[in-house]
Write a protein that binds this DNA or RNA. Structure first.
Length: 496
RNA sequence: GGCGCCGUGCCCAAGCGGUUAAGGGAAGGGUCUGCAAAACCCUCAUUCGGCAGUUCGAAUCUGCCCGGCGCCUCCA
């Protein structure tokens, strides 16, 4: 088994990912704030986390993966401000889309459900638990209270703040240490209630807030950073193996999480930190405020295959600059199509492509595929080198397609390969499709089953009436049905 | 000011000191086909942003220069 190496933001180098408990990865990924639809940039980061999970499982590890849903509308400048921030949920509720919702709770629920749909469409693994911040306010309060008692936090008229000076390691993740922070080119909002401008909120006092809870400090709501500290600890314990998020999370969010948790437990919080680089779209920076972002549902509505979207999103390793383009999506679709064609051939050989095949066969194809898969896994263990991993996966697919006619042994080896590749990369088929398998039998065009049209065309071909045959093919194509003449007869499939 | 990434064929992209510079897309040619589609086969960088240097040997290491970009602000 190859060694799983991953770039670690904290030590700034590629290091083996070594779980504290052998073969059991405890992994926390920062999830989205559900105040609008998640976009492909969010999903680049979630897919990268999913690939860590898949790789770890391929190595035979047990994986306890936790990824949260932030359904509290935090202040936008939690780390620096009291007054300058604006609540994201409340802002969303006041927006045009917000008119559809009765209140912030409804709004959060709607976008949380949409997020889960997109998650499944992209074939992401299911985490062990998907906690919501609103369901863990108690833990956040308990932790905040303990930090006050330990002397790491203090109460002011407006809330409870973490005292950054009480944690000398502050800045070790991002390089934004206390001294350097002062030089940062940021518009820091001053707040006379805080001892230091870098101190960040653990609790905000606010009895007017749309979401509020009662605490030892009165009515209010928790700070943003404390939720992840509390939830990670609740499910994974004091020390976790890996923590991931988008690169923007490194500072302030993760820096603050480290400060809170390590001050609280006296132990290192996460042994490994992973940050996913933001993507661009057609060469432009993508941001919600710029409005130039794609959501998964946008792309699906345009007719793109979610698996092609996933393929495109992982075509460049997670830490590199990545430019998402329509051209890239087309390139990806071509390769996803190869896997589909492989499944067709396997089925044609009389083997169910979904059947569980334990091992690749001893046939020549099986040996070749076993090699391709080993290289694919090795690439993933090399800091998730998805470019190479995909190349190996495609190499295997081409090896399958190169065989003029698969025999049963070939087909079983091919089925094994596709299963293994799909478990590792999730690009062959959706593991847990929400939609039932496309209705291959019941569709009708102009009131006639597709099979009848196909039969009529076959008859027309036999009597060399190619004009009629071609007109039928054109009619079906218009309805999104693609025909394919094979030695075994005419097959049809619905286009993307 | 801090932290970091990248410049490889028409496009995307691997490559981390040493055989013929992976792979995909596009393009051109071919096989198959009534014609298509799909699939397969072939062709497609003496060269890796530039200039020095280290080395027996560099796309790969060092320095400088040129160019593109990200985060530190809503945002993954």
């Amino acid at each position: 088994m190859p060694i799983f190496r991953l770039y670690d933001t904290l030590s700034r180098k590629v290091r083996p990912l070594e779980p504290l408990e052998p073969d059991h990865l405890r992994f926390y990924t920062c999830g989205p704030t559900v105040y609008s639809y998640a976009h492909i940039g969010n999903f680049r980061s979630f897919v990268a986390a999913d690939l860590v999970v898949r790789t770890a499982k391929a190595l035979g590890w047990r994986v306890s993966w936790i990824t949260n849903i932030t359904d509290v509308g935090h202040l936008s400048e939690d780390d620096v401000a009291d007054a300058g921030g604006e609540d994201r949920m409340e802002k969303a509720l006041r927006s045009k889309e917000g008119e559809h919702f009765a209140n912030v709770w409804d709004l959060a629920e709607h976008y949380a459900l949409a997020y889960l749909e997109d998650w499944r469409a992209l074939n992401l693994s299911e985490p062990l638990v998907r906690p919501r911040a609103t369901q863990h306010v108690r833990e956040q309060i308990v932790m905040t209270q303990a930090l006050i008692e330990k002397g790491n936090a203090y109460e002011t008229p407006t809330g409870v703040y973490f005292d950054v000076d009480s944690f000398p390691d502050y800045g070790k993740l991002s390089g934004n240490t206390r001294g350097k922070l002062l030089d940062a080119v940021r518009d820091v909002v001053q707040d006379e209630n805080k001892r230091q401008q870098a101190d960040f909120a653990l609790w905000k006092k606010d009895d007017k807030h749309l979401m509020q809870w009662f605490s030892p400090w009165g009515w209010g709501f928790p700070g943003w950073h404390i939720e992840c500290s509390a939830m990670a600890r609740a499910y994974l314990g004091d020390v976790i193996d890996l923590h991931s998020g988008g690169e923007d999370n490194a500072f302030p969010h993760h820096e603050c999480e480290i400060a809170q948790t390590e001050a609280y437990t006296g132990r290192p919080f996460s042994r490994h930190w992973m940050h996913v680089r933001h993507l661009q779209v057609e060469g432009e920076k993508m941001a919600k405020s710029a409005g130039n972002f794609f959501t998964i549902r946008d792309l699906v509505a345009q007719g793109h295959d979610p698996l092609a979207v996933r393929y495109a999103l992982i075509s460049t390793p997670y830490g590199r600059p990545f430019n998402f383009t329509m051209q890239l999506l087309r390139d990806a679709a071509a390769n996803v199509g190869r896997f589909r064609e492989c499944e067709r051939r396997i089925r044609a050989a009389g083997v169910d492509p979904l059947a569980f095949v334990e091992e690749s066969g001893a046939d020549e194809l099986g040996r070749e595929l076993a090699e391709d898969y080993a290289e694919c896994l090795a690439a993933m263990c090399d800091d998730l080198n998805t470019s190479v991993a995909l190349a190996k996966a495609v190499e295997g697919a081409k090896a399958i397609l190169r065989v003029p006619s698969l025999d049963e042994a070939n087909a079983r080896s091919a089925a094994w390969f596709l299963r293994k590749v799909n478990e590792l990369l999730g690009i062959v088929r959706n593991d847990a499709p929400l939609d039932p398998v496309p209705d291959t039998g019941s569709r009708e065009i102009e009131g006639r089953p597709i099979e009848e049209w196909v039969a009529e065309r076959t008859a027309a071909k036999a009597s060399r009436d190619f004009d009629l045959a071609d007109s039928i093919r054109a009619k079906l194509a218009e309805a999104g049905i693609e025909l394919r003449d094979t030695p075994a007869g005419t097959e049809w499939s619905a286009l993307g």
